[in-house]
């Protein structure tokens, strides 16, 4: 069985908001170390990977590995019924087809109980190879959100270039183009500043609609890390106290 008590429902609400438009159904894989989710979007272009550590919960118990197959739309609806600062308890019995959620109000005696149907999901888990990335960029997550939103007004794709100069985001639209250069900030470290580590010049093109989607995770962390190597998927990573959310995005190649 699983019994997990989260100090604030907000984390789960934000996580669901970050993945619900990318993925319809997914397995939350629970084991004694915590809860993991890995899922690809329908077109197999993007993959999201979530980790919630057992230590990030106020109380956590999972006797044996338990996959909780969830429709993310339904889960989002049930979580909307929780206030951000409610204590959130999730429970599932072994082989059960129901996930139960309890929301305990912080400042009153209100206790709300919900149940959600679980489903069997046949999902392929991909082996993601360990990669030594050629470039690693750390920046305020709000800045990344602004860049991808701004450029998505102009075109469908963004070219990301990391060089000695800094990191440049370039969009060539049909009617307009734009580029944004971020230099490493010498006097400011993350979360406010930008740090760039580079072993090799990197130049990759990605679809902006996915990046705009990933940027929703800025509610979970003030900092985002971009890891890039030529001709491999981009890794966009947000770390927070209880775990992380990571996105992988396959690049676009020449015309």
């Amino acid at each position: 069985m699983l019994e997990a008590r989260l100090a604030e429902a907000a984390i789960l609400k934000r996580l669901l908001d970050s993945i619900k438009e990318l993925v319809t159904d997914a397995n939350f894989e629970c084991n004694e170390e915590g809860i993991n989710l890995q899922a690809m979007d329908n077109s197999h272009v993007a993959l999201v990977s979530v980790k919630l550590s057992a230590s990030g919960f106020k109380k956590y118990r999972c006797d044996r590995p338990l996959p909780l197959g969830v429709n993310l739309g339904s889960f989002t609806k049930v979580l909307k019924c929780a206030k951000d600062d409610d204590v959130c308890i999730i429970k599932a019995a072994d082989d059960a087809d129901i996930l139960s959620l309890t929301y305990e109000a912080r400042n009153s005696d209100r206790i709300a109980e919900y149940e959600m149907k679980l489903m069997d999901i046949d999902a392929d888990t991909l082996n993601i190879p360990d990669t030594d990335y050629d470039a690693r960029v750390s920046m305020p997550s709000a800045e990344f959100t602004r860049i991808v939103r701004d450029l998505s007004q102009l075109g469908e794709s963004v070219r990301i270039e990391v060089s000695k100069e800094g990191v440049r985001f370039i969009s060539d639209g049909e009617a307009a183009n734009g580029n944004i250069l971020l230099r490493q900030t010498d006097d400011d470290a993350p979360p406010e500043g930008v740090t760039i580590e580079m072993n090799q010049h990197v130049n990759l093109t990605f679809s902006l609609k996915y990046l705009v989607n990933f940027a929703k995770s800025s509610t979970l962390s003030n900092v985002v890390q971009l890891m890039l190597s030529n001709d491999v998927p981009l890794l966009v990573s947000y770390d927070f106290n209880q775990g992380h959310i990571r996105y992988y995005l396959a690049p676009k190649i020449g015309d």
């Binding site: 197999h44 082996n127 190879p129 075109g155 491999v232 396959a250 190649i253």
Partner: peptide, 14 residues
């Protein structure tokens, strides 16, 4: 602008 790759090319199915 460019052809979209899929992840299957880069990541292995177990």
């Amino acid at each position: 602008m460019g052809r979209q790759q899929t992840l299957g090319k880069f990541f292995q199915m177990p």
